[in-house]
């Protein structure tokens, strides 16, 4: 098949663009499958909160939660998270599994240690 240079360039452009999108998709799948650097640390059933973890949790909160719960967690689209009256385990469960139709799940995004950090941060809010 004799293609003009323009035809070849167009096909190459479409091909490389598609391959790039495919590569990005594969990268996304690989990154999701990667064990977290903290995965070796197994969380106990009891969620232990510490000020050190709270500092780390603040980072995660800024990345994943503040958009709905507000910069200072006083609520926006999502509820105010200050002075939560539910248990640490319940908070962790909600972060992990989300609330159907209201809040996404974060089980794939954060491991137990990182969720403990988020719980620590939320517990530090008064």
């Amino acid at each position: 098949m004799n293609l003009s240079l323009e035809g070849k360039a167009l096909i190459s452009a479409l091909l490389v663009a598609s391959l790039s999108l495919g590569a990005a998709g594969l990268a996304a799948i690989s990154i999701r499958a990667m064990p977290s650097s903290n995965a070796a640390i197994t969380a106990s059933p009891e969620i232990v909160t510490t000020p050190e973890l709270a500092v780390q949790g603040r980072e995660f909160f800024g990345t994943s939660c503040s958009e709905c719960h507000g910069d200072d967690a006083t609520g926006d689209e999502g509820p105010n998270l200050h002075n939560l009256s539910i248990s640490n385990a319940r908070i962790a469960h909600t972060i992990k599994n989300g609330i159907k139709g209201e809040m996404p799940t974060f089980a794939k995004k954060y491991d137990d240690k990182q969720i403990a950090a988020l719980v620590s941060y939320l517990r530090s809010l008064h």
Partner: peptide, 14 residues
């Protein structure tokens, strides 16, 4: 992303 990559390839080839 796809557009920029495609445009870059097209421009190099043409």
């Amino acid at each position: 992303f796809a557009g920029l990559v495609g445009l870059g390839v097209w421009r190099v080839m043409m």
